[in-house]
Design a binder for these strands. Structure first.
Lengths: 358, 358
DNA sequence: GTTAGCACTCATTTCATCCGAGTGCTAACA
DNA sequence: TGTTAGCACTCGGATGAAATGAGTGCTAAC
């Protein structure tokens, strides 16, 4: 069976109505709600067809219809295809965002937490934001300082001024001289290199050079490797978990508990996001926005939810993700808009703060 | 009316039973549950008295009794007074904790998050852990490094090797020489000082010394001040928020939502903890453990909860808090034990890692 | 192809009834 | 005087029957 223009309009009307109310919608409602000027009986016939097509379904006889996952899918695809251009009327709102984002934030950490909050309160769903994943980190420079006789403070500065520090415990005492020499040695050898570029031959050359301090050099190199690698571990910020209580279909005790737990634990989310980051590279769908309806996402505790994700891009392979988790009857339009704008905002805010403003 | 030994035993029996079941408990149950060998009728008489004393109450006629807040209070006070000594039989459990805590943790942040997790999963309630609040931070040393022509990396090391870094943007370019000189100047002037000790005269002397770089010195001193002050902002880690769904009296949609929201937002908790840290200095109650039953705590969304908190002490005025939030029918004994042991564990773990092991 | 009409379905609401856990009180007992 | 048995009473919760009404599918007419 072909899906006619009229059928789609009816489907859309059903979905729109259901998004608002969360209640199954009947033929009479549609008959009035649309400008199709059709009687409820006609609508019923069409609905019967739509049901046969698998786009809507009845919770039980004598109830109205609700959209099926396929129905949502058709609706979302259609929406994404038609209205991908019209983002301008939200300009003011965006300005607010920008000031909110840049206002009094001095750490990326806080910034991202704020983004999550913003997104959650804007949409009334739960939100997720990840730190950017740095695909190829380069060492900008490294600095060793003695803080105590047997403790070495290691400050490691990566590309884009990402700074990390570790304290290294030594089993022997070092003179200031030696520390200075090591600083020089390490910086000369390693600066500007990514983790992959610090290959074995380089390292063994360094070791040889270090002489009796070989052990310490080893420890330091290990530390650097750990730090760079550690940046691969996404950090996840969530917000608005309690928004799910606004949607009865998600707020029964067990479902809500599982869902909030997933948001709290973050590990599962992290995996999901990593996948999403990787997979998106290939399947560039609609402006880099992906919509997972119901069981289209792989997280078991979220089978009753829809998830909308986007990646933000900071250039040079640094990409993170932002996402929304809500009920299947989500206001996809609004969410997609919000995410879309935030995606670009975030890209520019984070990039601006690293480079001179244009 | 005086509360006799027997009355207390009955009260205790009621509470114990209610902690387990969450159901109002009747006279017949008590008659069998205790070894008092009294008929249900006698118990009823006593219960009537206990109710008159305000220690228990009836949800409605023809229901059993449940403990009132006052009842819990009496029970908790009694418990704290009698059994404060017997902590030894938990020794094994503690060992597990210790390894769990020290295992693969390299940052205090992660450690504290783990503590929260541990506490939550041990008790089946929600847990809160704060970072230690440093009452008097001293500057150990400061180090400036040029990372880009107009960007200065400032590494600030405080007492106990707390390390913070900031990037300072400059409006002029500095030569390596000048940076070196500034390093020396700042360190000579400020090392070992607390924020209070960096008084105005000291700062203006520094400024004078800086000559044309006065502006930069100002910025740097501001940054230092900010960092030290910033350490006052407790960070709060929570875990096990979803445990509250295990207790029907807390898991109705609105209550749960509000409660979890409070845990998620953290701001309210932070205030509460700061208060608790301050107030505890004066009122050293039972081993530094405080129990707030029902509306004894000031947080509106937690009026149906009990909160048990303790402070952990790292010496030299560094104190943080750990806490448990659960239903009023909380297993106070177990919670108090868990918190008590964790309190000391935490003190020693965090202290060990800063000092040579004994 | 559209619509009016009608019989039918079934979740939800309402209402009355029943059940039983638990109480308070009284009277008898040790 | 304290304890206990007995009994009438209360009231929340469970059970089930009946009423309600939103919504459908089908048929027949337009």
């Amino acid at each position: 069976m072909e899906i006619s223009e009229r059928k789609y309009k009816i489907l859309e009307a059903i979905i729109r109505n259901y998004l608002e109310t969360g209640e199954p919608v009947g033929s009479r409602t549609i008959s009035k709600y649309t400008d199709l000027n059709l009687s409820s009986a006609t609508i019923r016939n069409e609905m019967s067809d739509l049901e046969e097509l698998g786009l809507i379904l009845q919770p039980h006889t004598s109830a109205g219809r609700i959209p099926s996952d396929q129905g949502y899918r058709l609706y979302v695809d259609h929406m994404m295809a038609t209205r991908s251009m019209e983002l301008d009327e939200r300009a003011k709102e965006l300005e607010d965002m920008k000031t909110f984002l840049t206002d009094k934030v001095d750490k990326v950490e806080e910034l991202l937490q704020n983004v999550a909050k913003l997104l959650a309160s804007n949409t009334n769903y739960a939100s997720v934001v990840s730190t950017p994943k740095l695909s190829t980190n380069k060492l900008k420079f490294i600095q060793l300082t003695k803080v105590e006789p047997t403790k070495l403070l290691t400050v490691i500065v990566l590309d884009r001024n990402v700074i990390r520090n570790r304290i290294i415990e030594l089993d022997q005492e070092l003179s200031d001289d030696v520390v200075l020499k090591m600083n020089l040695m390490l910086n000369t050898a390693l600066n500007g290199l990514s983790l992959e570029q610090m290959n074995l031959s380089l390292v063994s050359a360094l070791r040889a050079q270090a002489g009796e301090y070989e052990g310490i050099i080893n420890t330091i190199i290990d530390t650097i490797a750990q730090v760079i690698a550690g940046e691969d571990n996404l950090k996840i910020y969530t917000s608005g978990a309690t928004n799910i209580f606004k949607y009865p279909e998600l707020s029964d005790s067990t479902k809500a508990s599982e869902l909030i737990n997933t948001l709290e634990e973050k590990q599962v989310l992290s995996n999901f996001i990593v996948n999403s980051l990787d997979s998106e590279e290939s399947s560039e769908t609609h402006d880099g926005i992906q919509v997972y309806i119901g069981n289209e996402n792989s997280i078991s505790t979220m089978q009753d939810c829809s998830v909308v994700t986007a990646t933000y891009d900071l250039g040079e392979g640094m990409r993170g993700a932002i996402g929304i988790i809500g009920p299947k009857r989500m206001d996809y339009e609004k969410v997609v808009d919000s995410i879309k704008s935030l995606k670009s905002q975030l890209g520019s805010v984070l990039t601006d703060s690293k480079e001179p403003p244009k």
